[in-house]
Structures are given as structure tokens and as C-alpha cells.
């Protein structure tokens, strides 16, 4: 149990963590989308759309699925699992559905492609669903 794979500290000298934003106490979010995904889960739970217990079960399910796929679980994909749990719970609670999420994702990608660099990116009115 003393190989590099199981070494867990100090983590900040690992190449995989080299690009993480950090403060004196360590990394916070690697990318803004992680903080946004975090806030969405907290807010939906606060608003009563699901309990925090339901949330931990959904997140744990993503960890188990990742382990079953043989993915390394070193924390680096943590927020990808968080996001997958969020999508599954939002779908399970009927707040949205996979087709709408996929369609909206592609609409955002298209909006970025056609927006000149430096200008705010907005979805075209015609592409917004109802």
C-alpha cells in the first residue's frame, strides 16, 4: 500500500493537480463549471426539489458506476460524477429530461461558435425552448 497510486498526500505535487487553482489551504474548484454544478445541487435541495440524503445517494451511485467501469477514482473526476448525479436527479424528479438537456447543450455550443470573441454569448431567441 505504499505505491504511488495509493499515495494520497501531499496531493498538490501530483502532475494531475498542477493546474488546479488553489489558495493557502489548497485547491478550491478546478473550473468554474464545477462551482456552478455545486451551487445548482445545493440550491435545488434547499428549494425542496430533493433532500440532501437523496443527493448523497445519487452521488454515491455515480461513484459506484465509475468504479464498476474501472475508472480511477482519485478525486480528479469528482465533479464529473457530481454533474452526472445532478442530471440524473433532475430527470428523476421531472424537472427536465435528457432530450431537453442535450438539445440545450448543443444550442449553447452553437451560440459560442457564432459569437465573436469578446462579446457576451447568448442563446438566439429562436433556439430557446419553451
Amino acid at each position: 500500500m505504499s505505491t504511488s497510486e495509493t499515495r494520497i498526500a501531499p496531493p498538490l505535487d501530483r502532475p494531475a493537480f498542477a493546474r488546479l487553482p488553489r489558495d493557502a489551504d489548497g485547491p478550491v474548484f478546478a473550473e468554474p463549471w464545477q462551482a456552478q454544478a455545486f451551487a445548482l445541487a445545493v440550491r435545488l435541495s434547499e428549494a425542496g426539489w430533493f433532500s440532501w440524503h437523496e443527493w448523497t445517494l445519487a452521488l454515491g451511485e455515480q461513484f459506484r458506476s465509475a468504479a464498476a467501469r474501472g475508472e480511477p477514482d482519485d478525486g480528479s473526476r469528482y465533479y464529473e460524477h457530481w454533474l452526472a448525479a445532478l442530471e440524473s436527479l433532475v430527470t428523476a424528479k421531472g424537472l427536465s429530461d435528457p432530450a431537453a438537456l442535450s438539445e440545450r447543450k448543443h444550442a449553447w455550443a452553437e451560440a459560442y461558435r457564432r459569437t465573436p470573441h469578446g462579446e457576451p454569448v447568448a442563446l438566439a431567441a429562436a433556439m430557446r425552448g419553451t
Partner: peptide, 22 residues
């Protein structure tokens, strides 16, 4: 010219989709 905005990563787009729909 013009240089278009760089398309965000897949998870970033998924979060934007979720957030904008909700």
C-alpha cells in the same frame, strides 16, 4: 477575423444547459 468564442468543455456546456433550463 472575426475570431469566434472558444466553445466550452462538454461538462461546462452541460452545466449551462441545466442552469439555463432550470
Amino acid at each position: 477575423a472575426p475570431e469566434h468564442s472558444e466553445v466550452p468543455s462538454d461538462p461546462a456546456l452541460r452545466v449551462k444547459a441545466l442552469e439555463s433550463l432550470l
